[in-house]
Amino acid sequence: MTTGSAESVQQRIREFLEERIKTNIVVDKDLFASGLVNSMFAMELVVHLEQEFGVAIVGEDLKLDNFRTVERMTSLVCRLRDAPVTDHA
């Protein structure tokens, strides 16, 4: 994983959120604690990341803490994208 592609992941996540929230986002801001996004949007965010980056977010990874900030979402996506495909069944 090069820094460049992590940066582009972060950029794409930020752009998606900024378009939906219509606010500029600081990448380490807790989106849930600040009330910028709510629990209903949380699941859409998960599905969006899965589709946009071709990853499956399941098991232990499916927890709100991984989605609190753009930075955390970026590291989750990068980790899952780089991980060998495992059987989550």
């Binding site: 629990s39 949380a42 699941m43 998960v46 599905v47 499916l62 927890k63 709100l64 989605f67």
Partner: peptide, 11 residues
């Protein structure tokens, strides 16, 4: 299924 995932996400 989707709602169960949502429930898990929110703990």
């Amino acid at each position: 299924d989707a709602q169960l995932r949502h429930a898990r996400l929110m703990g």
